[in-house]
Write a protein that binds this DNA or RNA. Sequence first.
DNA 1: GGTACGATTTGACCCAGGTCAACGAGGTGC
DNA 2: GCACCTCGTTGACCTGGGTCAAATCGTACC
Lengths: 229, 229
Amino acid sequence: MRRAFFPTLFCGEACDPLELRELRRLATQLYFGAGKTIFAEGDLADSAFGLSQGVIRLYKLLPDGRRQVLAFALPGDFLGMPLADRHSFSADAIGEVAVCRFSGADLTKFIRSSPNIMLRLIEFATRKLDMAQDQLLLLGNGSAEEKVAIFLVSWCNRLGRLSMLSETVPLPMRRQDIADFLGLKLETVSRTLAKLEQKKVIRLVPNGVLLTGLAQTPLVTSRSHQPQI
Amino acid sequence: MRRAFFPTLFCGEACDPLELRELRRLATQLYFGAGKTIFAEGDLADSAFGLSQGVIRLYKLLPDGRRQVLAFALPGDFLGMPLADRHSFSADAIGEVAVCRFSGADLTKFIRSSPNIMLRLIEFATRKLDMAQDQLLLLGNGSAEEKVAIFLVSWCNRLGRLSMLSETVPLPMRRQDIADFLGLKLETVSRTLAKLEQKKVIRLVPNGVLLTGLAQTPLVTSRSHQPQI
DNA sequence: GGTACGATTTGACCCAGGTCAACGAGGTGC
DNA sequence: GCACCTCGTTGACCTGGGTCAAATCGTACC
């Protein structure tokens, strides 16, 4: 829980230092324990969140309990879209988590006053939309093996970009989370991982995997695939 | 092919009449025959399109030919996100189609100069994202029957909103398109429709259906579901 | 150490939906 | 009319992944 990590959405050369200072003023750091809910679908979106430390799962629930995990958020990710009036999905902590919260009213005023920030938001949303569409492609057309393999590849690409990649790739989420992300059952995820291990593509270790070489399946080559919301 | 239909994104009370006039100046009307491609995934997004008349299917292809239909666009829909540099999916006409094209450079300049329009774009993208996430929920968790039923309900809600709903609901797209939209095979779509007809929920007619009462399955109740891009 | 409890793996079986193939209903051109 | 072609339907069969149940592993707490 070291230093405050700011949403990358607001970082980079394009962001005015003055605006950044203003933003920092709006942000407060919050901590959540494992399994705690940051916000739930349907909640008034009276504030916006950036993830500083830890991993968060974003998901939707059906009345009968079925769940679709939309994404796993990593440090730097922004949660949800500012300016929406209600959250369209739930978010809860996987392990310990630190987030920075932006109070809604102030953030809204700030965004509306800055064309610069609005442009970044449009680009942000465009990227999210693109990723959601890649995910649709995967859910609609992938076999269990393709789904799991692509999930692993994309997960370690993301960790790599954050320099959080050691020899072994950590998988902090439960099998059930992966299953709900990929539209599979947890037994199938487990079996598929075992199958990949037999093929010498990965090696399973407690709370992680070791990638020893991932075959290129048709879906893997499909551009981007960097699920992060 | 009557009058020019303008993207609803740019309509409504919030849009300044002066800006609207400017936009109209940027738009040119184009016509495409059945099956013609308006743009393809990966193309330079040097212009943006609004659909005036007809139906368009938006989709992604895999190298091996598998296809995911992302949405069926109806008149008033905007195709793709402005400001992106490349199209992230393909679009082609189902039947005869009229679109208005906005030249990219001019549109970009116009958007960047209008905070008003940028805000609308953010809201637009937020809605699209929300819809994509509902679609993920459906693809990941729905049975064939749920998928088809929800598709029908949502399709006729959209037609209803456009007052394009007569006694019988037109289904201008092929079974294969519906299948690729729902992550099913065309035989399954056909069988499922037949099953729904046996249950007296619908009646099949050439190029359409007659809804005689659609049961509320868990997924149907899941808010919104107004696929349109 | 030992016990308890949740997460994961593994096995045996089943079924929704995929696959393959035949058939039928409209169109269209000659 | 007839040949041809595409789209849709239907049937028979198969299989990938779901379901149910029983180990096994890991970790935390006595």
